[in-house]
């Protein structure tokens, strides 16, 4: 199926809201000229973007993004993350599952850190110290031996 058809499928059961196919084309400016291209010919990051676009045209209240950065080039990840504030501004809540702590903390209003299935840290990212995050992320026992610089 083509890029445009993917978005049309997403829009088929759409609720009324700010996102239309045109709006998605504004959000991802590379899409419009390539709308007739088949999606399986696109790169992994582009496919990821199409999947996000397809979810957005349905005008969801909540957008679930699982492992957004998995397998994608850093520049693509950055580009996708840069859109998140814009999407939130339209009134959509986003739940991101992310391994990249810095990336996650940068966009999140609230953070839950899960360690072995339990919440080890929860709250507003600005209130956390780097040590807190590190301990929550790796577990208390590891903190003594790990020193991570330039993160969070």
């Amino acid at each position: 199926m083509t890029l445009q058809e993917n978005l049309q499928v997403g829009a088929f059961h759409a609720k009324k809201g700010p996102f239309t196919i045109e709006r998605i084309y504004e959000l991802f400016d590379w899409m419009a000229p390539r709308r007739r291209q088949r999606v399986w010919q696109l790169s992994g990051g582009e496919q990821q973007a199409v999947a996000i676009g397809r979810a957005l045209v349905a005008n969801p209240k909540l957008l679930l993004l699982d492992e957004l950065s998995l397998g994608l080039a850093p520049i693509i990840i950055e580009r996708i993350y840069s859109l998140i504030p814009e999407i939130i501004a339209q009134g959509v809540s986003i739940l991101v599952v992310e391994q990249d702590v810095a990336q996650g903390l940068a966009v999140a209003d609230r953070v839950h850190c899960l360690l072995e299935g339990k919440t080890s840290l929860t709250g507003v990212p600005a209130e956390f110290t780097p040590e807190q995050v590190e301990r929550a992320y790796f577990g208390a026992g590891l903190v003594a031996t790990t020193s991570r610089e330039g993160e969070s």
Binding site: N6, V9, G10, H13, A51, R54, A58
Partner: peptide, 13 residues
């Protein structure tokens, strides 16, 4: 869409 990828189509409602 369902023929191509049933799960993705289900995600789209």
């Amino acid at each position: 869409a369902v023929a191509d990828d049933r799960e993705a189509a289900q995600l789209s409602g």
